Computed example of a mutant assay.
Amino acid sequence: MPPDDRVPEFSRPLHLGSVGPDGRREVLEAAEAERAALARRFGIPAVESLRAELRFRPEADGAVRAEGRLAADVVQNCVVTLEPVAQRVEEAVALRLLPAGVEPRDEPDEPDDIPSDGGVVDLGEAMAEQLALALDPYPRAPGAALPAEASDAAGRPLAALAKLRPAAPRH
């Protein structure tokens, strides 16, 4: 969650007590201003859509399990040409929302634990964080490649740079 002095761009608070014994479903969609603010936060040209469909189930220890799908259409800049690259992000989401007093688990195969603040978890912020993690760290426009001059005959991309390094002094 963001620091207390900052309001998240995409805020959808969920009171853990509102999830009854039968669970519940939520659909979260970011409005245009929220998507523009998220794009600025992520340093990308655009978040054109952001939607999450989640199902909540209470667990015996008071935690709430959230599972579902996150889908977003984003525009990132190509790392080679800087051209805009439209991409579709679709990710499964699995989280444990923790009430006060429930300690996070440190299990690699378990859902991420999200602590609550006074029994409230900001689902919008949790989905924004999931989207940030799912973004392609090296987006490329179709056909974009590093210049051939940067590779040697063996295809080593930094070999040409090694030729520019000054020779080590000999003693």
Rank of each mutant, 00 (worst) to 15 (best):
V80W: 05
G101Y: 06
V93N: 02
G118Q: 04
E107T: 10
D106E: 13
V74A: 10
N77P: 02
P84C: 03
A72G: 08
R51N: 11
D122A: 09
R88S: 15
E125L: 02
P111T: 00
R57D: 09
L82N: 08
V79K: 09
A86S: 14
E103T: 15
E91R: 11
P104M: 07
R105L: 14
M127Q: 04
V85C: 03
L123W: 01
V75C: 05
F42G: 12
V121F: 01
R40G: 15
E125C: 11
V64C: 04
P45T: 06
F56N: 03
C78F: 05
E67A: 13
A132M: 07
Q76K: 10
E91K: 11
G62S: 02
V89I: 15
A72V: 10
L38R: 04
E83P: 09
C78N: 11
R88Q: 14
E59K: 12
L82Y: 07
V120P: 00
N77V: 14
L131T: 01
A63H: 02
A92C: 05
V75N: 02
A72F: 09
A63E: 00
E110A: 15
A92F: 08
P58M: 06
A71H: 10
D113V: 13
S116A: 12
V74N: 05
Q87L: 14
G118H: 07
A128L: 07
F42Y: 15
A60M: 07
T81K: 12
